[in-house]
């Protein structure tokens, strides 16, 4: 099972590393959101530390949706999805491979964005608390994100449908990830950050398992 999921992951990573089109677009877009926020909020009047975690996560959420939307497009375009479904692998293995791929892509984009973010917003102290916040938030984002991307690619409105379905469901992740990032920046004390990290762990576990179990119903015909 794991080996089969790894094969799907490897296929996606290889095509992406050859073309690099999605990763570049995601990274560029997340930088763009940061810069637009800089114009939207006058940072001479607002405390940067207070708004920074929110800005960071809005940028990841938008870039993430961009990437998620492409998850199944390549398969859809030349009907390669049928080839994938004919493979002697469980549907859940397809989910797992795609899910891990999305987590990796988002983490790469985040790793590129964060230094620029610290630089552009002149943040003084960013602790290692950022690592669990980014990891847990991204896993939660990609768990339902990968499932819903598979639904959205089959609708008439494709790219529009994914954020419409996804963002309301991700409200707990957005709140918790912003709070946990606030802890990394130093606006929230550690004992207040622990419940948020726990909440993300619960969310991640619940929705990785549920999506994994339910994914078979998406790819049927």
């Amino acid at each position: 099972m794991i080996a089969k999921a790894a094969l799907i992951l490897e296929k996606d990573l290889r095509t992406e590393l050859r073309a690099k089109d999605i990763l570049t677009a995601m990274a560029y877009f997340s930088l763009l959101v940061l810069i637009i926020f800089n114009f939207a909020i006058d940072l001479r009047e607002v405390s940067v530390d207070a708004v920074a975690p929110g800005i960071l996560w809005v940028s990841f959420a938008f870039a993430g949706v961009l990437g998620l939307n492409r998850t199944f497009v390549r398969e859809q375009e030349r009907n390669a999805i049928e080839g994938l479904m004919l493979c002697p692998v469980d549907r859940s293995a397809i989910y797992l491979g795609k899910f891990i791929g999305n987590v990796l892509f988002m983490l790469i984009v985040e790793a590129l964005t964060v230094p620029l973010f610290i630089l552009l917003f002149n943040l003084s102290a960013v602790g290692f608390g950022l690592v669990p916040a980014l990891m847990l938030g991204t896993i939660g984002f990609a768990s339902i994100g990968t499932l819903f991307a598979a639904l959205a690619v089959n609708t008439r409105t494709r790219e529009v449908m994914l954020p419409v379905l996804l963002f309301p469901v991700l409200v707990p992740i957005v709140i918790a990830a912003v709070k946990a990032t606030g802890f990394a920046i130093g606006t929230i004390s550690p004992d207040l950050a622990i419940p948020w990290l726990n909440l993300m762990i619960v969310f991640d576990l619940v929705f990785v398992v549920v999506s994994y179990l339910i994914f078979g119903y998406v790819l049927e015909e």
Binding site: F148, L151, N154, T155, V169, I214, Y217, V218, E220
Partner: peptide
């Protein structure tokens, strides 16, 4: 019906 059911359950 299948897709809606998935969203109904996750929601």
């Amino acid at each position: 019906a299948r897709f809606a059911a998935i969203v109904g359950i996750i929601g």
